[in-house]
Design a protein around this nucleic acid. Sequence first.
DNA 1: CATAAATGCAACCTCCAGGTTGCGCTTAAT
DNA 2: ATTAAGCGCAACCTGGAGGTTGCATTTATG
Lengths: 129, 129
Amino acid sequence: MRAAGNNRSRISKLMLSDSVYARDPAPHLAAHVFAALGDATRLSLLTKLSDGQTRSISGLSADTNLTRQAITKHLHVLENAGLVISSKVGRESQFAFRPEPIAEVRAYLASVSQQWDDALARLRAFVER
Amino acid sequence: MRAAGNNRSRISKLMLSDSVYARDPAPHLAAHVFAALGDATRLSLLTKLSDGQTRSISGLSADTNLTRQAITKHLHVLENAGLVISSKVGRESQFAFRPEPIAEVRAYLASVSQQWDDALARLRAFVER
DNA sequence: CATAAATGCAACCTCCAGGTTGCGCTTAAT
DNA sequence: ATTAAGCGCAACCTGGAGGTTGCATTTATG
């Protein structure tokens, strides 16, 4: 059960611009982070935490109309993406923002934008009268 | 069926730093874009297209080991997120990269990073001997 | 005109992301 | 010593994401 000869119709009608060939900068790496950011609840949690203050689970659950356990799951997703770090203090576990993955993802987006800008520049140079 | 008195345990043990209160800059807006980026296949498609060249569906399906239809779905997800735009030319539909949402998302990440940096600066100033 | 290419559409399938409920355990608070 | 807060864990439920197959349609091609 693979692709039933459906794909691979025209291998590559043109191979141009291989000097600036479109590579895959950070494929798997960034996808997980993006996926973690791709949820409104998680995005909200992260935004709250990005002020540098550490918060407990129930602290983050308040004003959320979601269950504490739901928030807990979201926090674990964020933690697995490295966007947040937890540490138990007393009976409550405190969560803190972790900026590293953000930087990584920003770099990725910057590279994509750069590639796009370069393409535009090249096009403009070509059309140049 | 809501939260069964489970949440809302301690409303707010402290209300400090309300001057730099953590707002939600672009909650719903960005989430869709992030979600669209949160898939390795889609990320790969977008990276290919970010070189400015327009590609057909089967052109993008080649070398993917996924079905053409699967790729089509992914492309539609990207299109709904505004990351890509399609136009039919002849019997094939060409897809092109669209940078606007990327810029939007970059702005969001920049604001989060900024908020974090500000928090650090404030902390450092406080600890300052 | 007959055939192949490139898609669109729809039905289907499977799995897991998000959510909830219930319960037990540990750590404050009174 | 009790009681309440704050969590962790596990079972369960549901909808939609990601894929596939089959078939019809439109547009090139020889």
